[in-house]
Deep mutational scan, measured.
Amino acid sequence: EKVLKRMREIKNELLQAQNPSELYLSSKTELQGLIGQLDEVSLEKNPCIREARRRAVIEVQTLITYIDL
């Protein structure tokens, strides 16, 4: 939940920025750090946690791809 919240904050900052190119590098670095945090999530045998992590990774990767474009 914390990762998704921060990812959404970054997305809003990028969309509202007057000059978003200044934010791209720092935002991309922070998003890659969020992916690292998601990699540390213990998936164990809980399919709900596994699915939530998968969705979060996809959302963060989508935003990274947007920045790259």
Rank of each mutant, 00 (worst) to 15 (best):
V3R: 00
L4M: 03
R8H: 13
R8A: 12
E9C: 01
E9R: 03
E9K: 03
I10C: 01
I10M: 01
I10A: 00
N12T: 14
E13T: 06
Q16V: 09
Q16W: 09
Q16R: 11
Q16F: 05
P20C: 08
P20W: 01
P20K: 05
P20I: 05
S21M: 09
E22V: 06
E22F: 01
L23C: 13
Y24G: 07
L25A: 10
L25M: 10
L25F: 03
S26W: 03
S27V: 10
S27C: 10
K28S: 02
K28D: 00
T29F: 12
T29D: 14
T29R: 14
E30M: 02
E30Y: 00
L31K: 00
L31N: 01
L31F: 01
G33H: 13
G33A: 13
L34D: 00
L34P: 02
L34W: 01
L34G: 00
L34Q: 00
G36W: 07
Q37Y: 09
Q37L: 11
L38F: 04
D39K: 11
D39Y: 08
E40Y: 05
E40K: 11
E40I: 11
V41L: 14
V41H: 11
L43Y: 13
L43E: 15
L43M: 15
E44D: 14
E44A: 12
K45A: 14
K45S: 13
K45I: 11
K45D: 10
N46I: 04
N46K: 07
N46H: 05
P47A: 09
C48P: 09
I49C: 13
I49V: 13
R50I: 13
R50T: 13
R50K: 11
E51K: 04
E51T: 05
R53Q: 15
R54Y: 07
R55D: 08
R55M: 08
A56F: 05
I58Q: 15
I58T: 13
I58D: 14
I58S: 15
I58F: 08
E59W: 01
E59K: 05
V60W: 04
Q61S: 11
T62G: 13
L63W: 04
L63R: 00
L63A: 03
L63T: 01
I64F: 01
I64Q: 08
I64K: 01
I64H: 07
T65I: 00
I67S: 02
I67V: 07
I67M: 07
L69V: 11
L69W: 12
L69R: 15
L69G: 15
